[in-house]
Amino acid sequence: MTKIGYARVSTIDQDSELQQQRLHAEGCQIIRSEKVSGASRAGRSELATIIDFLRQDDELVVTRLDRLGRDTRDVLNIVHECEQRGAFVTVLDPHVSTRGEMGHVILTVLGMVAQMERRFIKERQREGIARAKAEGVYKGGKARLDHALIRRLHGDGLAASAIAKIAKCSRMQVYRILED
């Protein structure tokens, strides 16, 4: 039985170090992390790698359910895929595991709450932006990546991996910018 930890933060500005420390303290032998939104499974290659790696009686561990996903259907699909491989999912806060029958019910409810919370966050964000626009103080979100730098480095002949390292982003982000 292997305990595999999964840490996720939504943006490159955030740090997953606390999640990784907690997963390590819980006995996770392998810990994978990524910086990508939990709104969908798109671009979550580390999670896909973990699921592919899971074997009978392995355990996928996350610190909170929203680290696994913000959409109830996604969370339930992830749990189902893990179970298809004979593995379990454990959420540390609040402590819930699919090892027991009640774990499924609790995870479903928590998944619905996480999805609802995401909708509330987006609604508050839209309201705040509308208010700021009405007051003439809205400047838009800050650019997280230097698109011009990425294009220039590509024009200089650098590979996506090298560009990603210099721009401090993922290769996938480099590819997306170069597609535009």
Rank of each mutant, 00 (worst) to 15 (best):
G43C: 09
L47K: 01
A48H: 06
D52I: 03
D52P: 03
D58R: 06
E59Q: 14
E59N: 06
V61H: 03
T63L: 10
L65S: 05
D66H: 03
D66N: 09
L68M: 10
G69E: 05
R70E: 01
D71H: 05
T72H: 12
T72W: 00
D74S: 06
I78Q: 01
I78W: 02
E81R: 06
A87V: 08
L92E: 11
L92T: 12
L92R: 13
P94L: 09
P94M: 09
H95P: 08
G100F: 04
G100C: 12
M102K: 08
M102D: 15
G103S: 04
G103F: 01
H104K: 12
V109D: 03
V109C: 01
V113W: 03
E117S: 01
I121C: 02
E123N: 10
R124H: 12
R124I: 07
Q125S: 12
Q125L: 11
E127N: 12
A130Y: 07
A130M: 11
A132Y: 04
E135Y: 03
Y138A: 06
L145V: 11
L145I: 11
L145N: 07
I150F: 05
I150G: 06
R151S: 11
R151H: 14
R152D: 15
H154E: 07
H154I: 01
A159Q: 11
A160M: 10
A162F: 01
A162K: 13
K165H: 07
I166L: 12
A167P: 10
R171K: 13
V174W: 04
V174M: 02
I177F: 09
